[in-house]
């Protein structure tokens, strides 16, 4: 009986996050009396966009069996430098390139430190979290926040709309989907996540793979920074401080295996981000207090981790790192 359950359970498991998302959408419709307005839809997309882009990029790192906890603060630094560039007259397009350059640059530093010095990614990015927070404080220097002055806000505000968000999320996701599912990059990521030893023995350069992975994720950081900048037009020392954890939650909600590897799914970032935003909005519309709402989300997260962890340990290969 147990074997039968496991057999069908494992077959159905990939569908669970999507089923959960559909269930949440039905509950959402119910809460809105089956009359969602354009505002409801816009709000969902507004709130999903930044996390979806970050999470989609982070899936590549997660697939390696690791996680970059400094993603959020890296985005904060990217936003900050983007604002500085814009205020110096770089224009919106210039600002976008600056955000991308900073996001990719920070990720490159992460990847080099990780691969060249052979530091565990999670531990190394924890150290980077502290460093980047300090960098953000210094860049903001002497102020509690850094703003785009109202007089020159107009060009940025023009990008603060639904279609820009959809375009950014759509294009980035499409590129990541192709890279992850149809190229060597994605296949090798899953192989390394499954077992670094096996990957190394089949000729995969783990150092090279780590650098490529971080570059893809860094592009997501830069794009997310641009989207955040168009929405908030400001940065403070707390910008992105909790985003790293939110991204981790989103990816797990989206059905990503905790160990990464062969069953990693590129859609996990978007599905998880959408699920989290829907849960959050449902709780808000039901009038659940912020404190209870946090408890509710934490319990849901634990429940998802519990389901995701079922039987995965038995299937894992040796994870000893061999260079």
């Amino acid at each position: 009986m147990r074997d039968v359950l496991l057999k069908y359970g494992n077959k159905l498991k990939p569908a669970i996050p999507f089923a959960g998302l559909i269930l949440l959408a039905v509950v959402y419709l119910f809460v809105t009396d089956f009359h969602p307005t354009p505002f409801h839809l816009t709000t969902i997309i507004n709130q999903v966009a930044v996390m979806a882009v970050l999470s989609t990029g982070a899936v590549f790192i997660f697939a390696l069996g690791s996680f970059d906890i400094s993603l959020g603060v890296a985005m904060g630094v990217s936003v900050c430098v983007g604002i500085l560039a814009y205020n110096a007259g770089a224009g919106v397009v210039g600002m976008l390139f600056v955000c991308l350059a900073v996001g990719i640059g920070v990720s490159l530093v992460n990847s080099v430190l990780s691969s060249v010095f052979r530091l565990p990614v999670f531990i190394m990015t924890m150290a980077m979290l502290t460093v980047l927070t300090a960098v953000l404080q210094i860049l903001i220097g002497g102020k509690s926040s850094l703003l785009v002055p109202s007089g020159i806000q107009a060009p940025i505000k023009a990008f603060d709309n639904l279609w820009v968000r959809l375009l950014f999320v759509g294009v980035y996701f499409a590129i990541c989907l192709v890279l992850f599912n149809y190229t060597k990059i994605g296949r090798r990521n899953k192989l390394v996540g499954g077992s670094p030893i096996v990957a190394a023995q089949t000729g995969v350069s783990i150092a090279k793979q780590t650098i490529i992975t971080f570059l893809i994720s860094g592009t997501g950081v830069g794009l997310a920074a641009f989207l955040m900048l168009t929405r908030a037009q400001a940065v403070s020392v707390d910008t992105g401080a909790s985003t790293g954890m939110d991204v981790m939650m989103a990816i797990v909600f989206g059905g990503m295996p905790l160990s990464g590897g062969a069953h990693s799914k590129i859609a996990a970032g978007i599905v998880g981000s959408l699920s989290i935003v829907l849960v959050s909005q449902i709780l808000t519309m039901l009038g659940v207090s912020p404190g209870l709402s946090q408890v509710y989300k934490a319990v849901l997260f634990l429940a998802v981790v519990f389901v995701a962890s079922l039987s995965y340990r038995e299937k894992m290969l040796s994870r000893a790192i061999m260079f």
Partner: peptide, 12 residues
């Protein structure tokens, strides 16, 4: 905690 989450809070 930051400007973006403040915007989100207003929407919520």
């Amino acid at each position: 905690g930051d400007a973006e989450s403040a915007v989100t809070v207003v929407e919520e």
